[in-house]
Design a protein around this nucleic acid. Structure first.
Lengths: 199, 199
DNA sequence: TGCCGGGTTGCGGATATCCACAATGGCTGC
DNA sequence: GCAGCCATTGTGGATATCCGCAACCCGGCA
């Protein structure tokens, strides 16, 4: 299994129980006693899922979740709650929490959810990969090439682009060729497909 | 306000209270005593939102929600629940419910949520409109034109398309022109932009 | 000062696309 | 059977795109 379950709970008994539980099901895990302690070790490139206690001293699990979301993290989060607080659960899920589990929880079900979350994160990473390589390719375009590309994506003729940029058609052609080369496509249509949704 | 709040609850007191409440806030509403009764009047082109009791005799609110989803409905749904059942609430929200409110509910808050749901549905309808006109345009393409269009979107040259379909290049050109005309674009790139995401 | 990358341009030819005009064959419905 | 839609093809010319080859200008850098 790829990825680790990051446990944050102020109850040592729970931490120990979860750690042991995950170990028994071959799921890598690591535990912290507070959101603050966890954040000290946090890096945005970690792979896995979070298992957060909703209510904790200091920063709550929900606040931690919000904070990480703001930081651009999309790691799936499974909340553990000891209270039957529906508005809280609904709010968490609406904000994008992966799941919300009541204590006491069924051990097997929880691990199953965690494994689902890990798998989800793994597949998300795969999608990000293509995304990132695309960004990398866009990144190596020169400013001028980007100007030309924008106009190509508007479906404009080279002639029109040349007029708009006050340069010769031949120059546009050169840029166009370089853009296609750098972006790894061989036609404007492919370029449009590749960048559909972006911009 | 555009759209109606469709209430389904087997408790007459609740139905009356909600009807009166909505009326006082100028929100159009209509109420049914069961999911089955509601379905008898259901049409997929209704505008508004649903306010469903989770637990009812016969088909439950959750089942009704699932059924409507299967039927392709995307009308926002606000659940009302008299029980503090977190798994149920979480499951409903994960499936796309707009909200999940516990009874007894705060009148004003509920109406606010309903109004949010109505606004959400209204904006969704606007997006659907463009979508629908696009479908309509695709719909008036002949089968052959669709074959050609698929290949155009692959960035293939007319010559290649002609070979693949065993027809003359000229024929492909004709199809291509008709496709552009029917789809209301003037280049393959625009076509790709228009259809990005679909297919 | 010399090298290098980015932006620019010209020339000329091979390919492709865009289109008007014109026409044939098949199938469907009245 | 005729009208109408769809698919098909041809001719020929105007435009565009695609590219190799060659070259110039400029600013940053060793």
């Amino acid at each position: 299994m790829i990825g680790t379950a990051y446990i944050v709970d102020d109850d040592e008994a729970i931490r120990d129980a979860l750690t042991w539980l995950f170990k028994s099901r071959m799921v890598a895990s690591r535990a912290w006693h507070s959101a603050e302690a966890f954040l000290a070790d946090w890096r945005n490139d970690l792979r896995g899922c979070l298992v957060l206690d909703v209510r904790m001293e200091g920063m709550s699990g929900l606040e931690l979740f919000d904070f990480l979301s703001e930081q651009g993290s999309h790691m799936p989060v499974i909340f553990l709650s000891g209270h039957g607080d529906i508005p809280l659960a609904v709010a968490a899920v609406k904000k994008g929490a992966f799941d919300f589990v009541e204590k006491p929880f069924n051990d097997n079900e929880l691990v199953d959810r965690v494994i689902q979350a890990l798998a989800f994160d793994a597949s998300r990473q795969v999608r990000r990969a293509g995304q990132a390589s695309l960004d990398a390719r866009i990144g190596q375009l020169t400013p001028r090439e980007r100007e030309v590309m924008a106009r190509i994506l508007d479906g404009k003729y080279n002639k029109v682009i040349a007029d708009e940029l006050n340069i010769a058609m031949r120059t546009v052609e050169v840029h166009r060729a370089r853009i296609f080369e750098k972006m790894g496509v061989k036609s404007a249509v492919e370029l449009a497909q590749l960048l559909s949704g972006r911009r």
